[in-house]
Amino acid sequence: MSGPSRFEPPVSAVSEPFWEATRQRRLVLQHCGSCERAVWYPRVMCPHCGHADLEWREAAGRGVVYAVSVQYRAAHPGLADRVPYAVALVDLDEGVRMMTSVVGCAAEDVHVGQRVRPAWEPLTDGRHLLLHEPDGDEPDV
């Protein structure tokens, strides 16, 4: 993977535990203490049932590509040398959908139904950005 020239996300107050965990390439997700569902993106309340008691839990971060679009033009200059690249929505096994980029194969080969697993890209401040790569062992869903 090339240098960390990618746009580096800010850290919002509520998401600090998420970003701290990425320093050890760990994924943590909020879960609702009332309805038990996972919550994405980080919030101060559960969007499923409205309760405020959310707790952070470890997550594997494997999932299935729900939709994918290959970008043939870089959305910002730091990505110019990576074109074309695949932006995807992935349904994690934990029950949430998130945006990601699927790397580790040709962008055009990324497809709906493909099993993927986390791939961490270093950011300049020690955090990592959660990407995904093909999960070699797993058949399509």
Binding site: R6, F7, E8, P9, P10, V11, S12, S15, Y41, Y66, A67, V68, S69, Q71, R73, A74, A75, H76, L79, R82, Y85, V87, A88, L89, M98, M99, T100, S101, V112, L129
Partner: peptide
């Protein structure tokens, strides 16, 4: 934010990339 935190880092062109994802699905 929160788009800046959870979508922009992945380099999605907006708005076209969002509509492209819908077309993909």
């Amino acid at each position: 934010a929160p788009r800046v935190e959870w979508e922009i880092p992945y380099g999605i062109q907006l708005p076209i990339g969002a509509y492209a994802l819908a077309a993909s699905r």
